[in-house]
């Protein structure tokens, strides 16, 4: 594993206004992630996994403390700069896939490359490569509605990976999948993690996911309860 630190979180707190008061979803988080990690944020519902993931993904900002992602401090980023960071360096995978329903599989995976302004011929090659990683080259022209859950999530992985981001953030990626499909996509991600050195961070309470990660960060009530690294070969 590489020592290069790409995410540093210190004293991170996140409050949400609730009624007249506020709710503290993250209550002093200190964490750092190195390049190439395959880590899971594990905890019961409401423990703050999604909230933390959103901040690392620059979709939300800290209330207190700091989160530095690839050298950029999340709280201080302009809308444009954070969009640029997500566009080029961050990939997202969601529980409910969030594919664009009106696009074909190809167009879904192509989307991030369109945003980057990559030219058509290069784009096509990259999309086909990404679909090959997830084993879906035969579904190029299908619409999401015609795919199974497992296939949909593989398209989502391809869409997240096609631009070869530094970090992929996956929020409950297996929650809607059966065991076989869960293992399949986890193996796919593990392979990509190994081959492309992409950092994967999961938010999950799925035992199957927990079985794959090489670092388990247990969250409880907005705090890190335990942080253990597992050496695997």
């Amino acid at each position: 594993m590489n020592d290069e630190v790409i995410i540093t979180i210190e004293g991170l707190k996140k409050h949400f206004p609730v009624g007249s008061g506020r709710f503290t979803a993250l209550n002093g988080i200190d964490l750092s992630f190195g390049k190439g990690e395959f880590a899971g944020l594990i905890g019961p519902s409401g423990s703050g996994k999604t909230t933390l993931l959103n901040i690392m993904g620059t979709l939300d900002s800290p209330s207190e403390g700091m989160a530095i992602i690839l050298g950029e401090s999340v709280g201080n980023l302009s809308a444009r700069a954070s969009a640029l960071l997500r566009k080029s360096q961050l990939g997202f995978i969601f529980q409910s896939y969030n594919l664009f329903q009106v696009y074909t599989v190809f167009e879904n995976v192509e989307f991030p490359l369109l945003l980057q302004g990559i030219e058509a011929s290069k784009r096509k090659k990259m999309v086909l490569d990404a679909l090959e990683w997830v084993g879906l080259t035969d579904k190029i022209k299908s619409k999401p509605a015609q795919l199974s859950g497992g296939e949909s999530q593989r398209v989502a992985i391809a869409r997240a990976m096609v631009k070869k981001p530094a970090i992929v953030l996956a929020d409950e990626p297996t929650a809607n999948l059966d065991a076989a499909n869960s293992h399949n996509i986890l193996q796919t991600m593990e392979k990509l993690n190994r081959e492309l050195k992409t950092t994967f961070i999961f938010a999950t309470h799925d035992e199957k996911v927990i079985g794959y990660v090489r670092r388990k960060i247990f969250l409880f009530d907005g705090k890190v309860a335990k942080d253990e690294k597992i050496e695997k070969n």
Binding site: L59, A79, A83, R86, K87, F94, N98, F100, L115
Partner: peptide
């Protein structure tokens, strides 16, 4: 979809 656009890097 809107959230996804933003997540994928649109302002």
């Amino acid at each position: 979809e809107i959230g996804t656009y933003v997540a994928l890097g649109m302002t």
